[in-house]
Simulated assay, not measured.
Amino acid sequence: MSDIFSRIEHSRTADEVVEQIETLILEGVLSTGDRLPGERELSRQFDVSRPILRDALKLLEARGLLVTRHGGGTYVADIIGQVFSKPVADLFSTHRKASNDYLEYRREIEGITAEYAARRATADDIALLDAIMVRMEETHRNGDFDDEAEIDVEFHQAVGECAHNIILLHTLRSCYRLLSEGVFHNRLLVFTMPGAREALLSQHRAIHAAVKAGDPLAARQAAMDHIDYVERSMHDAERSGEWQRVSRLRLRQRSTTNEPNS
Rank of each mutant, 00 (worst) to 15 (best):
G195H: 11
F84E: 07
S11D: 02
D236M: 03
L30E: 02
H156V: 04
T192P: 05
S202I: 01
A118Y: 05
Q221R: 15
V88A: 15
A209K: 14
V230N: 05
R252G: 00
F145N: 04
L36Y: 06
T68W: 04
C175W: 02
E181V: 06
H95N: 10
H70Y: 15
L24S: 15
V230R: 06
I112C: 02
T13Q: 06
D146A: 14
V67Y: 02
S93Y: 02
Q253H: 10
E148T: 01
T192E: 15
K212G: 07
L66Q: 03
H204N: 05
Y75V: 01
Y176L: 01
H156Q: 08
D147N: 11
V67D: 01
V159W: 05
R120V: 09
C162M: 13
L169N: 08
W243N: 03
L251S: 10
Q244E: 14
N100V: 15
A123C: 07
Q82H: 11
T32Y: 04
R177M: 09
G182A: 14
T139K: 10
I132D: 11
I227S: 04
A213P: 04
R205V: 03
Q253L: 13
H10G: 14
L201R: 10
C162H: 14
Q157N: 12
L249D: 03
Y229C: 00
I4K: 08
R135P: 07
Q244L: 10
I166A: 09
M193D: 11
A219T: 01
P194T: 06
P260Y: 02
E104K: 08
K212N: 12
I80H: 02
S202W: 09
D78C: 01
I25T: 09
N142W: 01
I151V: 14
R205C: 00
E22K: 14
G111Y: 01
S233P: 04
T113I: 01
V48E: 00
Y105M: 00
T122N: 05
V211C: 09
T256F: 00
F46T: 05
E150C: 03
L59V: 11
L26A: 14
R12K: 15
A77T: 01
R119K: 13
S240H: 00
A218N: 07
D55K: 14
N261G: 05
R254A: 12
R197H: 06
A131Q: 08
V190R: 04
E161L: 11
A14F: 10
Y176M: 03
E104S: 05
F191M: 11
C175Q: 10
I167F: 05
H140W: 13
I151M: 08
